[in-house]
Design a protein around this nucleic acid. Structure first.
Lengths: 210, 210
DNA sequence: CACAAAAACTAGTAGCGATTCAGGATTGAA
DNA sequence: TTCAATCCTGAATCGCTACTAGTTTTTGTG
């Protein structure tokens, strides 16, 4: 049933408020790790009461999801033009201050596989989008003759992303190997091509057409 | 100070009790998903009071860890002799009733990358063990001439495991592709060898020398 | 066997933290 | 200006983990 009356839509400053809150969550995640984040702290940092925060995001899970999405946004817009996204990934994981974000990403991706989880759709879309992006890129390389025509672009894309995600997990458990170098090795093996311009989306930063 | 007196060690039935509890947790995880598991239910199912459960496992995280380890045990011992472990993995993931275990595994592997998390050591050892296992297997294949000498066994092992873990995540978010077939493709690309006997450890089942 | 001492357990409860409720303040379209 | 929709707050509520203090069971020892 459509709403007969009412429904005026969000007020002007609401979008900004939501961004502030998401930023507050992100800050706290980076500082303390997502398990130590409590809604009270989020509220304090965002300059809002606790129910005030929950008015904008219905649950804590949605708060964490908002942080992840917010990170996607700021990360992507901050990417230096011309820098290979592959390299950007390496950078993204190397920074200690981002470790906690990757942790959150990994943990949530486990939780979110439950279709009732608020972040379910997010992760699903995320995989789709980045798989498609990279698959297209591979097809382009094939058209250019840089990659053989026998390579299944969709499958290769899937495998490259899987490798990336898995490497992250290993790296979290025990750092001390060059995650970028390993990934590149996998790409070369899968495509038979020393890639420098295969694009996709970083672990905690989805591609976005601003 | 060493214990001058005292310290009699666990009683006879304690190991069994702990197994019962771990089994109870595992059952509940399979039934409801790990997020819906509460210690009260665990206690009820194990036929014990709540503090009684917490006497054996200090926290809920340890309970979940116990479930994971318990699954490793029963899974590994139940593996039909002669069946390729690669195939076993495929089977393991395909079963719907195991989905919740994989979820738990993934989520926890995110949480556990924090060194203070109870499961930190578990996951670290797990990667090490299975990496070593598969690397040795690859070296064996190289000795047999089935795999070229230019392949870096350690790196390949790392990448295969990473791929496996990543494929699982994708599969959880959106099933509907042949996870075993994809993995095999990756293995072939990385080793240049149609492997049937490369061994490692399944996603939620570590190798154990009973 | 008895009996101390450690281990295994129970009832009760403290207390943290997410969520809800019942309003109050603010915004903006008419 | 008016007034409904939106946004936000203080004060509970409630589910859940984990602790405290004391009780029963097990088991080595004489």
């Amino acid at each position: 049933m459509g709403k007969v009356t009412g429904s005026r839509g969000s007020y002007a400053k609401t979008a900004e408020r939501r961004r502030d809150i998401a930023q507050a969550v992100l800050d706290l995640v980076v500082e303390k790790g997502h398990r130590a984040v409590v809604t009270a702290d989020v509220a304090k940092r965002a300059g809002l009461s606790e129910p005030g925060v929950l008015y904008h995001f219905a649950s804590k899970d949605e708060l964490l999801l908002a942080a992840l999405q917010h990170f996607d946004d700021v990360e992507l817009t901050a990417l230096p033009e011309g820098e290979s996204i592959l390299r950007a990934r390496e950078r993204a994981v190397a920074g200690v201050e981002r470790t906690n974000i990757v942790r959150l990403h990994t943990a949530m991706s486990g939780e979110a596989s439950d279709p009732t989880h608020p972040a379910h759709e997010y992760f699903k879309q995320r995989w789709r989008r980045s798989n498609k992006l990279m698959a297209d890129s591979i097809r382009q390389l094939q058209a250019d003759g840089a990659v053989g025509p026998d390579v299944d672009a969709d499958s290769a894309s899937r495998l490259i992303h899987a490798t990336w995600e898995g490497l992250q997990n290993q790296w979290l458990a025990e750092p001390g190997f060059d995650i970028g170098a390993e990934l590149e090795k996998a790409i070369v093996a899968l495509l038979g091509y020393p890639v420098e311009h295969v694009v996709g989306s970083p672990p905690a930063g989805r591609s976005r057409a601003r």
